[in-house]
Design a protein around this nucleic acid. Structure first.
Lengths: 227, 227, 227, 227
DNA sequence: AATGAATGAGTGTTCATTCAT
DNA sequence: TATGAATGAACACTCATTCAT
């Protein structure tokens, strides 16, 4: 049975393990990572691991959780201070891409979570999507966007960000030889090109439409979140 | 070294292995699957596997390839006979969701490919995206959509389909108890609700804009030209 | 059960298998070699092998036997026509080294036989040694060498040839980096340097002593009676 | 990665594994031996093995190394206290044969090393030979032997010892039925008969010759070690 | 709190051999 | 006579987890 650390020393050990796990999972993916590699990197004994975590999965879940907090924080910080809804949206995406570029392992870890810990994955996406939904609701209420179902739109936005991020941040140069972009050790400093971000925003802007215009005809049938 | 089957019997065995592999990978994911599980399901000896495939990875790659052909075929068949570009688009997505519902393993396999065989994954997405790009180019040439960069738009569409599919086809009912949607053995017959498909298409329709305008020009092109 | 070939075609197939086996065993050693590699090289089906040989070991034994005939033949041919016993001895060794150089696999195969098929190994050495014994007996009878026990001397000669052959033919250049001489694919064309052969013969000549004396009598029997 | 044991318990386990490996390799040869057989004999779990050794080969190499130290030690201890060079030589050989008789696996292991770990084999022989070379040099300097090239002579001595040891220690009684001497489990208590040792020493004594006598005529061309 | 030693079930893969055709 | 398909036991090696200290 793992236990919460009861001392400052224990607290520190636990943090070391989490940090080590992030690196190891990011570099190798869940299955390639091993508990002993994590404890090596953390500089603690193998047995120590099980003082703080019940299993290999436990630390992974915690990591996904942690990553989720951090992306969302990065996104809302990025969006903060934007002068318009759309600008905020754009800044949020940019922050997301930046975070992905700086933590390419995030992507790997999260996508592998699908097989490893589906609940963690669902929670991760759902929380981000909830942020989008709130934003879309507010935007609609403020008359800035059309009456599109915010839940559907939010998941669409999630997908757009994920795919564009994968394509331009993780894979990087499109002309790279096959295999190159797949190098897990490739530096994650690639940026989404300005032009791509622009076009993506045009796409989204169009999608979300204009209030009181075409595409808003269903205002009379206000959407619940769920179908 | 694996060999292509030289006899009808061998051909049959190879097919049995591929089918077994699809089920086993779909149910368990790549890492949880084992070659011996595959050969058990196929009803052949373990050694027989290596007569046809060089490694565990080899059959996985072949499977991703195969799945890629099949989704794309399903999508273009679904889209065939549509009376308009948008209808075709919608039919394509519907076919994609149907395929996903019928082969939930597709999703699992393809997403895990990111860790396991990144090249296979890239090829998979890229091929689908290329189809989108072609369609978007034609649509633009025919004056049906705005001048948005087709590559960016195509990846956005890919993301939308992927995420909506994950959310509504694979996870199914949103109120399901956590864990339920993750059940790998859960039947894959869920459909994307009509309303979600509608809203998603509204989103896309808006995104791709109106011909002769920027995607954002849409507001000043009043609704009379609404289709 | 294997069978002797009953047709000319069968005879040819059997020979192809033996030749292939020689190459494969020589290149890889017994354990690394596989029956399927042999049949591949021979250009026949795997099943065909078992028409002619009962097991993997069977062909190995036959090969050792065959090799034994060939070295002995090479040695006696080499020695033929020598004008004196010692010259014959030297020519025999030279032929042995030449054979080893041309068939480096011989060495490998024979030495591995120790673990694989000890009887074959014993027979191999014993037969060669018997040749030495006969020669030594004749030499003694002709008053050319001392009265040393021919059996002991013969085994000593066997050891000398084997070790010198290993050291100078198989390992080749003494300054070669470790690992280099071990390369199983290294060409076996190295020769025992003249000087080494000379010194080795001096060694043997001294060992076999002078007729009518003990091997150790030699010092007081000065060189005038040198043959 | 294997690790050096950090505790007394670990030290003990490592030793148990090495001892078990010696027995198992000696009895079965490298290829027939299995890691699990070794761990069974050692009485530890399979995984434990890999705590101490990186591979099956690693323990084999260590064993050859270890055996090498032990034979050489046995040989120099055997030779210690001999009153003359020749007596020392004889005592060294006798010790070698005794060691072989007590550790028949030595032979098997070392000779199989040729296929398995050629570098280890070369090192093994080379080290023993170096001891011979030193002895021969000293003997020459002391005027006890002729000027024969010490390197060549040393390898010849190595070969003589090896072959005589194989013939009389490992195979034992010459009239034994074929197969008997090959029994890997046969007790290794056989001795080289007195007569054989005597004759072998006569052979060697003659070979090394007397200083300033026939057979030494090449004193004017002092030998370098290498041709 | 911390550790390193120990475990054993499980993995992908190989290969001598058999057999139906 | 010849074959290629099929087999399954065996192997080296890994790793999440447990435990005595």
């Amino acid at each position: 049975m793992s236990a919460a650390p009861r001392t400052a020393r224990g607290e520190k050990t636990r943090r070391k393990l989490l940090e080590a796990a992030e690196h190891v999972f990011a570099a190798n993916g869940y299955h390639e990572a091993s508990v002993s590699r994590i404890t090596d990197v953390a500089g603690v004994g193998q047995g120590t691991y099980y003082l703080y975590f019940d299993s290999k999965l436990a630390i992974f879940n915690e990591l996904v959780e942690d990553l989720n907090h951090r992306v969302r924080q990065a996104m809302s910080e990025g969006a903060r201070g934007a002068s318009s809804r759309l600008e905020a949206e754009r800044a949020g995406f940019a922050a997301f891409f930046r975070f992905t570029a700086e933590h390419p392992g995030l992507y790997r870890v999260v996508r592998e979570a699908e097989q490893v810990s589906p609940d963690a994955l669902r929670l991760h996406y759902t929380r981000i999507v909830e942020g989008y939904i709130d934003g879309l609701r507010d935007a609609f209420d403020d008359g800035e966007i059309s009456d599109i179902d915010p839940t559907v739109a939010a998941w669409a936005l999630m997908g757009i960000g994920e795919m564009i991020g994968m394509r331009w941040v993780l894979w990087g140069d499109p002309d790279a030889a096959p295999g190159a972009g797949a190098d897990p050790t490739a530096s994650g400093t690639r940026e989404v090109p300005q032009h791509v971000l622009d076009e993506m925003m045009r796409f989204i802007e169009g999608a979300l439409g204009r209030p009181g215009t075409a595409g808003t005809r269903r205002a009379d049938a206000p959407q619940k979140e769920e179908s």
